[in-house]
């Protein structure tokens, strides 16, 4: 399995990457390459130019930014997984980063790559949605920020213009309970279903987001409403599949996913409440 031929450019900075994107039609940014290269090997993607941003070292960081934590887009999963700031101030990100793939994949794959790729089966977008994260995007006219809730549009579809690059993700510091439960068949598999729970200041104020339950990461609105109305977690969790539209694929049928989601949601709520 060999990718189709392409031209290769190295970006020295985010600004340089934006400039290079402007010079080429049909160019793709290459970060860790752990979503893009497998697609290219299968010839499901054959961009004519790859712009390698993997050497832009100043986009790999985790910083305390007051009430938020700023994560550079090129931070690899393994670095996020072991990062002390994330472990103490936003542990769900550190935990979920360690749930992706395996150590080798986590050494190359990046948090920003996962967000920008917009795969509804990946874990990080769901976590970002549950956390109400904010993304920083750089384009030819400067920077803009966008909420996670507005960023994910569809399968592999996100709010990034052809000449834009995601540079940073900002997540809130969390001090209350959280959980990310992922049901998968084998250690390295994508989530058949994943559920992220981040509690607010009480059990009736939780954000709940789902992986692999539709064309993009989804908030489990029914569950959130039920909790807000004072229902107990076990009964609120029964509404987890409401408004979802999961695919049928070799990992499980749509019906199967709709069965698992409420069960995982109940467990995730229980785990979050016990933390």
């Amino acid at each position: 399995m060999i990718p189709a031929p392409f031209d290769y450019e190295v970006a020295e900075s985010a600004e340089h990457a934006v400039e290079l994107l402007g010079q080429h039609d049909d160019a793709k940014l290459l970060a860790g390459g752990h979503s893009l290269l497998p697609l290219m090997k299968l010839r499901l993607a054959s961009p004519s130019v790859l712009i390698d941003i993997g050497r832009v070292s100043d986009l790999s960081y985790v910083r305390d930014a007051g009430d938020r934590i700023a994560i550079g887009a090129l931070t690899c999963y393994e670095d996020a997984h072991f990062d002390e700031t994330l472990k103490s101030s936003c542990p769900i990100v550190a935990h979920a980063a360690g749930e992706v793939g395996d150590p080798q994949v986590r050494n190359r794959g990046t948090i920003g790559g996962s967000v920008a790729h917009g795969d509804p089966a990946s874990d990080i977008p769901t976590i970002m949605l549950a956390l109400n994260a904010e993304f920083v995007v750089r384009g030819p006219t400067g920077e803009r920020t966008i909420a996670a809730a507005d960023f994910f549009k569809g399968v592999f579809e996100v709010d990034l213009a052809p000449q834009e690059i995601l540079t940073e993700m900002r997540v809130p510091k969390t001090s209350s309970g959280w959980s990310y439960l992922k049901f998968h068949h084998r250690a390295q598999d994508w989530a058949t279903v994943g559920v992220a729970v981040v509690l607010g200041d009480g059990s009736n104020n939780a954000s709940v987001a789902l992986t692999s339950m539709g064309e993009r990461p989804l908030r489990a609105q029914g569950v959130e409403e039920a909790l807000a109305a004072g229902e107990d977690p076990a009964s609120a969790a029964r509404r987890a599949a409401e408004g979802t539209n999961p695919v049928s694929d070799p990992m499980g049928s749509s019906e199967y996913r709709r069965q698992i989601a409420p069960v995982l949601t109940r467990r995730a709520l229980e785990e979050a409440l016990s933390r």
């Binding site: 290769y8 290459l30 290269l37 393994e78 050494n107 190359r108």
Partner: peptide
């Protein structure tokens, strides 16, 4: 760092 060399150029 360990990496899978089939998924790196």
């Amino acid at each position: 760092k360990s990496v899978k060399s089939c998924t790196m150029l």
